[in-house]
Write a protein that binds this DNA or RNA. Structure first.
Length: 119
RNA sequence: CUGGAUGGCUGAUCGGGCGCGUUUUUGAUGUGUAAACGGUGUGCGCUGCGUCUUGAUUUGUGACCAUCGGUCAUGUCCCCGUAGCGGCCUUGAGUUUACGCAGCAAUGACGCGCUCGGUAGGAAAGUCCGGACUCCACAAGGCAACGGUGCCGGGUAAUGCCCGGCGGGGGUAACCCCAGGGACAGCGCCACAGAGAACAGACUACCUGACCCCGGUCAGGAAAAGGUGAAACGGUGGGGUAAGAGCCCACCGCGCGAGCGGCAACGCAAGCGGCACGGCAAGCCCCACCGGGAGCAAUGCCAAAUAGGGACCGCGCGUCGCAAGACAGGGCUGCUUGAGCCCGAGCAGGUCCGGGUUGGCAGCUAUAGCGCGUCUGGUAACAGGCGCGUCAGAUGAAUGGUCAUCCAUCCGCGUGGCAACACACGGGGGACAGAAUCCGGCUUACAGGCCA
RNA sequence: GCUCCCUUAGCUCAACUGGAUAGAGCAGUCGACUUCUAAUCGACAGGCUGAGGGUUCGAGUCCUUCAGGGAGCG
């Protein structure tokens, strides 16, 4: 069992915009945006993660639930397979992020991470 | 009314405990430095003394052994001891104070680890009302403007909320609904239709008389009938009349209303009036009552960052002059003088603007407390007493993710049964919805259960 | 947290101080013109005025409770 990397959460709007302009990959359960930071950017931990669930996802309950599932998935997948020096932004999708079976959601995240790294 | 249950694995956050590390403060201990006090004569300098003390000197002198040196005595100097004088402080011991260091203990903060416990709602929602709290403004209060409320009584911290009553409307009834003051303060509106729409008037038709003449015209009477409309000047019956008419009478309606009941809204009502007084105030408005404004991104503190900017005010700014400048004054060079150069203004002030920051801490979660139980008062809302329990504090925003079982419930199929239904198997599967300073209401959403 | 505005035909907008049938342009359908199309001309259809409740004789308009959309301030 590999060690889990600690993750910090993105808080700045500019970080989100930069990640959205970089690489992106969609799946049924979620949408991933990621970029490799330049070395001079300061960061507390090597991997940073942000979550985006807009009003398109649903009402407040649905948005919170989607964000919580994305957080748990990021802890599971990005903690092991994330690359140091990268920012990841996980975007929730309407209904699918909440309703998709847990194993499929994890598979979606692994698939998008692989695609983004190899792109 | 209620807002699924249990367990496993694994997370988030808050709080308590324990351990470790870093650090703040305090305490006593040890130690270092400095100062003061204190007492003493140590140490210091000079002089003197000394068979008691240590060394130096053999190039001070003498003697001996002897050979290039050694031993002894004495001298000198140092050390040591002691006495006197000088200087009064350096030093040593002690005490106190200040500062620093070390480990220890207590305490607070932060971080990490382990462990224990708490962790969304009935509507957390909409933001429609009412408050608490904080800041600003004004200070008894009144008026004006603006906004709101609007039967009466009670409840409440308060309300536009709740309870009870009254009035009106609907319903066979149980019961339900009502923004329900004022139209005699004033203004305005009432389309179309209709003769006439707000204060009286008269289109058709009616009656009488006159004229032309056989159906109309004119004058007068009268307001019942017709039709229109949401709304048309009381209704029915009788008398009366040329025809009619509250013109008269009875009943009903309407208005005024002595008196009685009720805290009040209001109700009952003798009697009187021949009918006069339309509707709209969720049109303007009048009356009564209520309301200062902003909101936890309030407010206070810390840190970081940028700029040492602009405007106005205040204080100050030597004299003359509108100004240029001149004369005083100060500084520097130079120096015997003459001379030359420079300064001649700002501020540690207040308000506003501009610029920068978008971090942290407090406010911050427990009290008009709330919840449960019980008793008392009250028709009730509610109030009071007693007992027990203590109940989320996040900030890209925690309170979860996932798996399994059960329950409410739904679907399919099978068996039993006349049926409602019961049992077995398989499958689906949790409604509305996420705190953001707090509280009381209202409104809206909603799986399920119960009552009328 | 606070404040304000809008919703009318498929689309963009009107409708006065409450008054009867809610109007215009574009788009649509049909017809005319043309060899055909476009343009033009004529005709037609299309609306329970976002939803519910109320005031009024009468509501797109006034009041109220919601729904959806938008704007502004701190």
């Amino acid at each position: 069992m590999t060690e889990r990397q600690p993750l910090t959460v993105l808080t700045k709007r500019a970080d989100f915009l930069r990640a959205a302009r970089a690489r992106r990959q969609g799946a049924k359960g979620l949408h991933l945006q990621a970029r490799e930071r330049s070395p001079e950017e300061p960061s507390e931990t090597p991997i940073r993660v942000g979550y985006t669930c807009s009003k398109k996802v649903g009402n407040a309950v649905a948005r919170n639930r989607a964000k919580r599932r994305l957080r748990e998935a990021a802890r599971e997948v990005l903690g092991r397979e994330g690359r140091e020096g990268w920012d990841y932004v996980l975007v929730g999708r309407h209904q699918d992020t909440v309703a998709r079976p847990w194993a499929d959601l994890l598979a979606d995240l692994r698939y998008t991470v692989r695609k983004v790294h190899s792109a």
